[in-house]
Measured scan of single mutants.
Amino acid sequence: KRRTSFTPQALEILNAHFEKNTHPSGQEMTEIAEKLNYDREVVRVWFCNKRQALK
């Protein structure tokens, strides 16, 4: 499976959402994914990886 390359704009939006809520609901992740035109699973993994990076 290929790595997803996030655009700077997408990272800005993802980081803004992460600052508000580090554990978004499934519905929220779906909405973010649709807004950014990414697969929901990609957004889920991004949040998971971001949380791990802060440990």
Rank of each mutant, 00 (worst) to 15 (best):
N49M: 07
F47W: 07
Q9H: 11
N37F: 04
K50E: 08
H17L: 12
T22P: 13
T30P: 02
R2T: 14
R40F: 14
E31W: 08
A16Y: 08
D39Q: 08
K20V: 08
F18M: 01
E12G: 09
E41W: 04
N15W: 04
R3P: 13
T7K: 02
V43G: 00
R44Q: 14
E34Y: 06
K20Q: 07
L36G: 01
I13Y: 13
K50W: 01
K50L: 01
P8F: 08
A10R: 01
F18T: 00
G26W: 15
F6V: 13
H17C: 10
N49C: 05
E28I: 12
N15D: 09
E19M: 12
A16Q: 13
F6T: 08
H17R: 09
E41P: 01
Q9Y: 10
K35Q: 09
L54C: 05
C48T: 06
F6W: 12
E31K: 04
R44F: 09
W46I: 01
T22A: 13
R2D: 15
T22S: 13
R3I: 15
P24T: 02
R44N: 06
C48W: 13
N49T: 06
Q9E: 03
V45N: 06
S5N: 10
P8R: 08
L14C: 01
S5D: 11
K20D: 05
E19L: 11
N37I: 04
S5C: 11
F18G: 01
S25W: 00
E12D: 12
E12K: 02
Q52K: 13
A10T: 04
L54I: 05
N49A: 11
C48Q: 15
T4C: 11
K55L: 05
E28S: 04
N15T: 06
R51K: 12
I13V: 11
Q9N: 08
L54A: 12
E41F: 01
E34W: 06
I13F: 09
T4M: 08
E34Q: 07
T22W: 07
L14K: 01
A16G: 11
H17D: 08
N49P: 02
T7N: 04
T7R: 04
A53G: 12
V42D: 12
R44T: 13
P24C: 03
A53S: 13
A16C: 07
K35I: 07
H17W: 13
A16D: 15
R51N: 10
K55V: 04
A33S: 09
E12P: 02
D39R: 08
Q27H: 15
I13R: 08
F47L: 01
D39K: 05
I13N: 09
R3S: 13
I32W: 01
R3L: 14
A33W: 00
A53L: 10
T7L: 05
S5W: 09
L11Q: 03
